[in-house]
């Protein structure tokens, strides 16, 4: 494989990997869908920090 080809492949791999990581950690792409209630009620998610 030529040097140029290796660099391009490396760059593409890097951009794909960092994008997936960003989507996973910050945009929650791979989180399970929010839970729906027993009667089809939409989820009600309440954010909190574990302080008082």
């Amino acid at each position: 494989m030529s040097h140029r080809r290796s660099v391009i492949l490396g760059m593409v791999t890097w951009v794909a990997a960092i994008s997936l990581l960003h989507g996973s950690m910050n945009l929650r792409w791979f989180d399970p869908p929010a839970k729906w209630g027993p009667n089809g009620a939409p989820p009600f998610r309440v954010g909190f920090l574990p302080v008082t």
């Binding site: 929010a34 009600f44 998610r45 309440v46 954010g47 909190f48 920090l49």
Partner: peptide, 14 residues
């Protein structure tokens, strides 16, 4: 039921 607590460790993320 439909209430789902979502925990964070820092205010900016929340």
């Amino acid at each position: 039921g439909t209430m789902e607590p979502v925990r964070f460790n820092g205010w900016p993320e929340l």
